[in-house]
Amino acid sequence: MAEPTTLAGFVAEIRAQVVDTADVARQSAWYLARGRWDWPAIWAQAHEIGVRSVFFVIVCLGFLGAIINLQAGFQATRIIGDASLIGAQSMPLVVRLLGPTLTGMMVATRVGTGIAAEIGSMVVTEQVDALRMNRAPPAEYLVKPRLVACMIMVPALTTIGITAAFFAGMAVAAFAFGTNPGTYADFDVVVGLDLVEGMVKAAAYGVAIPIIASTAGLRARGGSEGVGEATTQAVVASSLAVIVLDFAISGVVFVLR
């Protein structure tokens, strides 16, 4: 996969990527409906994707919660001279936008590159050909366990991430602006639709990221250069998918509201 140099080459490359992704998605759906359920493999992937991302997600989303509340607090004290409402201001935003989307970006970063690197290495060392020779189609043997694990783990990580952002925000509000933690934790401002919006987004990212990253891995060609190119492609394409899905779902929910 050489870097395209012309606009036509660029468009053709993106078109090929979309076609391949659709193909992997179609095959995965087929095997999701009918294929074998390799529970040990799914369990191993859930550990790799979920458990090993927890620390990373907590650190990033914790800082995010702190940042949002700093910004909100500075604005609130500047304009209305009172920072007691910053929890109420920031929490809906975290639950329906920043929590799921930044968790999604982090999963695209950590898990997307991991999946693409792993599958890409198997492609360039002919291990994927060996799988196809032995009744182990990549969509069933490699993609399905990752897809199932992500579908479960991305919403779980999102919940953990939102919780981390909530507590980090509470700490910032208390220490920087003297907001009472009890006032901060005003759960009435988060309506059911916010939670639904956040979880729908998380579920959508959980489906999109593993399929896009696996496709990038399966498209790897050549040696270590090919694997590097595949991981780059995975993180860019799956991060972009997160942003576009966020835009689409936010738009639908706004119209419903």
């Binding site: 060392t125 002919e126 291990q127 050909d129 060996a130 196809r132 020779m133 032995n134 009744r135 189609p137």
Partner: peptide
């Protein structure tokens, strides 16, 4: 089709250039 090919491949033993052992 790809799925029918899987049965055919069961009749083949392939030795790959780069070993292709599952690491």
């Amino acid at each position: 089709s790809e799925r029918e090919l899987m049965d055919v491949r069961g009749r083949i033993g392939m030795i790959f250039q780069n070993y292709a052992l599952f690491d």
